[in-house]
Design a protein around this nucleic acid. Structure first.
Length: 269
DNA sequence: CGGACATCCTGGGGGC
DNA sequence: TGCCCCCAGGATGTCC
């Protein structure tokens, strides 16, 4: 599932490939991907150049000349740059025709992703982006500490709450807990100030290092699509043993598959 | 308001 | 071996 680093890699890749291209037409093969009226969506994007591609948390923001739309890849969303004559997959749902003859295709096996027109100027202050917390890099320690203090639920669940910190998904939540030797079910309010400080540092470092590794794949995408997935060396998520050779345990936390090392992650504060 | 839970979808994996 | 059923999972909405 694309999380902040993968979405950032997608953003950078798309920036290389489609910046300043004009959208000459758009086709809705599976309209529910569009949040809102598809004709309104079409009116807002057609005959406009893509002037910038931004990112906030796991959201991509496509800025056009006179409007903007956001795109969330959810579980399996991908963007592909295709030739017009390329075979259209049954998982290609939205097709943007570009003025250079290429097509930008949104491909999503699970059909969970969504796109939505937002206000060009105030989108950051409107739903859904206004409910995002800070990304770990920019987070104010005091603010995060205060938020964690009033939460009794597992720290891993809080890490997935985009209103507390934006951009972390299931994979990196597991990795962050491992890096801190922290048991994922530790109640969030049990973390000391020092540990919350450490949490922000660890989260920033893990995400930054994943972005760095993603950077190496920017020019190597091809028919596999731009999903930003790459060989990040995960230490616990979907692993059988941790780097020290201990057996990884899988449990459910708030309905989410959670991997941790019972030996390394004994700490509960 | 915090927290639990259902919902959307499909391929892949587990079970028989 | 092969087939069928079940289920994960991010964000949102509903319910308590």
């Amino acid at each position: 599932m694309p999380e902040l680093p993968e979405v950032e890699t997608v953003r950078r890749t798309l920036e290389h490939l489609i910046l300043n291209k004009e959208i000459v037409d758009v086709h809705f093969l599976y309209p529910p991907i569009i949040d809102g009226d598809i004709n309104t969506f079409k009116e807002n994007v057609i005959h406009q150049k893509i002037t910038a591609i931004e990112r906030l948390g796991k959201y991509l923001i496509f800025k056009l000349e006179k409007s903007a739309f956001i795109s969330h890849l959810r579980m399996e969303g991908k963007y592909l740059i295709c030739q017009k004559e390329d075979h259209i997959s049954r998982h290609d749902h939205i097709i943007f025709e570009l003025d250079d003859g290429h097509e930008l295709r949104y491909h999503d096996v699970r059909k969970f992703g969504r796109m939505k027109i937002v206000d060009y100027y105030t989108y950051q202050k409107q739903l859904p982006l206004c409910q995002l917390g800070p990304e770990p890099f920019n987070a104010d320690f005091q603010q995060v500490y205060q938020q964690l203090k009033k939460r009794h639920i597992p720290i891993k669940t809080v890490l997935l709450d985009q209103s507390v910190l934006a951009g972390i998904g299931n994979i990196y939540a597991n990795e962050i807990c491992y890096q801190m030797n922290l048991h994922p079910e530790t109640p969030a309010n049990r973390l000391t100030k020092k540990r919350v400080q450490e949490l922000l540092k660890v989260a920033s470092d893990i995400l930054n290092s994943a972005i760095e590794q993603g950077g190496t794949t920017i020019h190597s995408f091809s028919s596999n699509g731009i999903d930003g997935l790459f060989q990040v060396q995960l230490k616990v998520h979907m692993q059988h043993t941790c780097p020290l050779g201990h057996d990884i345990k899988k449990i459910m936390v708030h309905g989410r598959g959670t991997y941790y090392c019972p030996v390394c992650q004994k700490a509960r504060r």
